[in-house]
Design a protein around this nucleic acid. Structure first.
Lengths: 114, 114
DNA sequence: GCTCTATATTGCCAAAACAGAATATCTAAG
DNA sequence: CTTAGATATTCTGTTTTGGCAATATAGAGC
């Protein structure tokens, strides 16, 4: 029950759902997600922690960067199923469409290192 | 996006999930749910409102009683899918098992009209 | 060692969520 | 039309959440 509720709670925020929809297209680092969503960096880190605690997302350190990617869902049937459903769900959502369209223009080389 | 988040948020509370698991077995009125969960009546009504707003649940008035039942999900693909999944999910959850076991002993004739 | 830079953590605030007590509404029955 | 019981709504207090600014941490490179 706790695991299930944790996953549902993680999916109860539009920004977190947006992160998942973006990660369906590619791996992203924190500053890229920050640039895409237009919210503060600590806020992004906190959202990612919630998603990671729910096992919806995993991270891999690559030097200074931390790459976030979708979990394979092997640890939780809820995660596996919901991530599967989210492949089709929200594909036509205006906010998601806009995010995915500008995704190619967001590259860590241009965004960070200011 | 808003619809999806609303459904996820509705499923982010253990008591609300418990209500859904009970409604899988039979229609229930407010005071029966109250007795099963052991929480205050206004709290139950509020949870039911959240579930109804998310279209996870429907209600039918029957005189003084209001019977709550699971939605058929025809209004929302998220609802249809998640309610389908919840048929199998949490079947072995201790809290759910205990609730379902004592479900037969909870009848509105015995519970209400105090 | 020191300096950048990316990310995480902390602290704080406003808004939302959950709980119950008290109250209001509705309906059946007399 | 008055009462009694089932449910909904309001009110209030407490906890949780989402946001940001400020700070701390970690790794790359000098």
């Amino acid at each position: 029950m706790k695991d299930f509720v944790r996953v549902m709670k993680a999916l109860s925020d539009p920004n977190r759902v947006a992160i998942i929809k973006m990660l369906q297209h590619r791996v992203m680092c924190v500053c890229e997600i920050q640039a895409a969503l237009g919210i503060a960096q600590p806020t992004v880190s906190k959202h990612l922690k919630v998603l990671e605690d729910a096992e919806l997302v995993t991270s891999r350190k690559d030097g200074v960067w931390v790459n976030y990617l979708l979990s394979d869902g092997s640890g939780s049937p809820y995660v596996a199923t919901v991530l599967g459903n989210l492949r089709h769900w929200l594909e036509d959502d205006p906010q998601v469409v806009e995010l995915v369209e500008k995704l190619p223009t967001i590259q860590r080389e241009n965004i960070c290192k200011k």
